[in-house]
């Protein structure tokens, strides 16, 4: 996913805040939006299937310039299924987002990810090549790497990953700012 200023907060500030959350709560919630990585229908089954095989799913983030003007409203509750809600740990602050990924081991990295070596692992586009899927407004995906490289050329789309984390249980959740009446 692409990351940058979110809810009027610069990325460096977010990273520092999330690192502190991991120290205090054992994990952080990384807010996001859009529906290509819907918590319940995409991320949870995707991560669970890999974790059952003893593997780890990494959140790979590409830094970008952005102006995200969402209100800095703190989410007070989270839910795994959209039905049962629980209070968010007081040390964790998710601001201006509808969904959040549970992460730990957040760190800066620098490597290039060739999208043609990936494919979509879940959902309506399952099986589609990552380089065709990540395009236009789509900047997030549940991808798995593949051995075979189809149609690789010098112009093959590559994204520079600058930030990484491990996704941990409960993987991805809905968040809201107050109890629904």
């Amino acid at each position: 996913m692409k990351v940058g200023t979110h809810a009027q907060e610069p990325l460096d500030s977010i990273i520092a805040r999330k690192t502190k959350e991991i120290e205090q709560a054992g994990f952080a919630l990384w807010g996001y939006g859009g529906s290509t990585c819907h918590p319940q229908t995409m991320v949870q089954p995707f991560v669970r299937s890999y974790e059952q095989r003893g593997q780890v799913i990494y959140l790979c983030m590409q830094e970008m310039d952005s102006k995200h003007f969402a209100e800095q409203i703190r989410a007070a509750e989270f839910s795994i299924n959209g039905i049962d809600w629980e209070p968010i740990h007081p040390a964790i602050n998710v601001l201006g987002s509808r969904y959040a990924l549970a992460i730990r081991n957040l760190r800066k990295e620098a490597f290039v990810l060739p999208l043609a070596k990936t494919r979509v692992a879940v959902g309506n586009s399952i099986g589609a090549s990552g380089d065709r899927y990540i395009a236009g407004r789509v900047d997030k995906a549940c991808l798995e790497t593949i051995e075979e490289i189809s149609g690789t050329t010098e112009t093959e789309p590559r994204v520079s990953i600058g930030l990484m984390a491990e996704i941990v249980t409960p993987y991805a959740v809905y968040v809201r700012n107050e109890t629904a009446k």
Binding site: G34, S35, T36, H38, M42, G123, N124, S125, A128, G136, R137, V138
Partner: peptide, 8 residues
């Protein structure tokens, strides 16, 4: 125009 597959 599904978000996760606009061309489907």
């Amino acid at each position: 125009h599904l978000d996760d597959n606009p061309d489907l």
